[in-house]
Amino acid sequence: MKKKILFCATVDYHFSLFHLPFIKWFKEQGWEVHVAAAGSLKLPYVDYQFHLPIQRSPLKKDNIAAYKKINALIEKYQYDFIDSHTPMGGILGRLAARNRRNKGLKVIYTAHGFHFCNGAPLLNWLVYYPIEKIMAHFTDLLITINHEDYSLAMKHKFKAKEIALIHGVGVNPDRFTPVTKIQKGILREKHHYHRDAFLMFYGAEFNRNKNQSFLIKALAHIKEQQPEARLILAGEGPELNHCKELAESLGIRHMVDFLGFRKDIDLLLQMCDLVVASSLREGLPVNIMEGMAAGLPIVAVPNRGHGELVCSGRNGWIVKNVNEMADKVKLLAADERLCKQLGAESREIILEKYSVNKVLEEKRKLYKKVINEMGGEVQWAVH
């Protein structure tokens, strides 16, 4: 009989963006793979996919129905393994699984950035810290993706059976590859940019945490010295109109391109010179890793995720305010050689630690260790 695994998260596109290599790997090992999350996105490598009426806030009543559905799925399919992600997916998945752990069910939770962290609002600590600490009791393996979260879990004595640290969810360096200057020029012509423009990119949902207004204000500081600079923003969200109005009020609307939701991030990165990042909180941001894989330098504000990826002076800089961001952009815009040097270091860091194959190997070892505890040695296929 095939072993069964349930992947659980708040929304299904979380799996599409970050976890298909791991879902595919389980399928290759002969497992029956189920997924439970909100949404109707068709995912590959999945045997059964279930919609959950799950909400991001732990205070929403719909989460009671989502919990009941996960519980019913566990009872019906008798899973061997639950792999949960996102705060609410992790909470409900572990709650529903808690009474079956003494019957052999193994439960993993990956924290993609605790909502409580250094600099997080007090409310986050009041709400999410006690929840995560309690939920750790129902967790066989708690996986963290940055050193700060790992240290927090250890320091505060989270009672998961094991706590581990890995290098995020990985990025495919073969998709996000650097291009030659000639290739970059061709891409720019296709997208109607001047060959000599200095293009900065940031791809993220427009919300208060992602803080795109910071980047727009920094751009206003360099408009006189670098009139050919352009800020390219991909994404949608509740703060989009505010950012458009801000760019208009600062007289730089013509220097900011709001692209909306895009699926061609790899091509957009290939025509750009720099990745900028302004989010207040990050676990280990994939959008930054994609820019690094594409061979671009990074200029970002301080947070735990950016600090893991950006080595100041090696592949970019961590900056504390709008003036520092503007100064670093001006420096790079005036020095093509420095851009190239820092970008090469960015890609080297990805190849050293953060490629999807390296992360898959890290998780494979953790998966194998937990699953072998079910009883008997598991034979793993090699692909």
Rank of each mutant, 00 (worst) to 15 (best):
H194E: 14
E290Q: 15
I5Y: 04
I145R: 00
N172V: 06
L41E: 15
V127E: 08
R304L: 05
H14S: 15
E308L: 04
E377Q: 14
K133L: 08
E189Y: 10
L20I: 15
E308R: 03
A72I: 03
A111Y: 02
F18Y: 12
I54W: 01
G283H: 00
M292P: 00
K320F: 08
E373L: 09
Y13W: 15
Y193R: 07
H192C: 12
I5W: 02
H306T: 11
G260T: 12
A334R: 13
I318F: 04
I288T: 06
I252K: 02
E248D: 13
G283P: 01
K76N: 10
I252E: 00
R281Q: 13
H167T: 07
L309F: 05
E377W: 09
N209T: 08
I82S: 02
I182Y: 12
N372F: 09
G90H: 06
P173A: 12
N124E: 09
L165G: 06
K24D: 12
A164V: 08
R195L: 13
L17P: 00
V286L: 12
I182G: 10
E236M: 13
G305W: 00
F116R: 01
Y67G: 04
F201I: 15
D327H: 09
K217Q: 15
C8W: 01
K184T: 07
A247M: 09
K42S: 13
I298W: 01
A9E: 05
F138A: 08
I64T: 11
P297Y: 07
P53Y: 07
K363R: 15
S279I: 00
F198S: 01
G93M: 08
A66P: 01
W317L: 03
E75W: 06
V35M: 04
I163T: 09
I298E: 02
K210N: 12
A334G: 12
